[in-house]
């Protein structure tokens, strides 16, 4: 449920690191809590994001969740297919359900993110 090659934050985003590019989505736990995602609001390429600050929103029928940037940087790519098919986030949160790619201004920031094991412990405590 929590792939070990990813990093996580306490707002339930996951991060896949490739050089100074961070791909970001929401975890299995987050999509399950939210229920079927029916609407996503994401930034545009070129927008800058700030660590710990909201960069977008996901909505299910019953609730709204803010998306928080796990690192600082600039959005370089956005998953456009989520606009028409937000349910992909539920179906494949770590794959096709990715949300944005960030070019990190400070790649070492990922070191403080949680490992899969640490995140799983954190989630168990939240439940």
């Amino acid at each position: 449920m929590y792939p070990s090659d990813l990093k996580y934050d306490k707002e339930h985003e996951w991060v896949r690191v490739n050089g100074d590019i961070a791909t970001v989505g929401i975890s299995h736990f987050a999509q399950d809590q939210l229920g079927e995602v029916v609407y996503v609001d994401l930034p545009a390429p070129g927008d800058s994001v700030t660590l710990g600050e909201p960069f977008g929103e996901v909505e299910s029928v019953k609730s709204v969740s803010e998306l928080y940037a796990p690192v600082n940087g600039e959005v370089v790519k956005v998953n456009e297919s989520l606009t028409d098919s937000p349910e992909i986030i539920n179906e494949d949160p770590y794959g096709e359900g990715w949300m944005i790619e960030i070019e990190m201004s400070e790649p070492s920031e990922v070191d403080v993110l949680l490992s899969a094991e640490e995140y799983e412990v954190f989630v168990t405590e939240e439940e």
Binding site: G35, E36, V38, S60, V61, K62, E87
Partner: peptide
């Protein structure tokens, strides 16, 4: 019950 399988489903 709020939902079982999911509200949309």
């Amino acid at each position: 019950p709020l939902q079982y399988s999911g509200i949309v489903a």
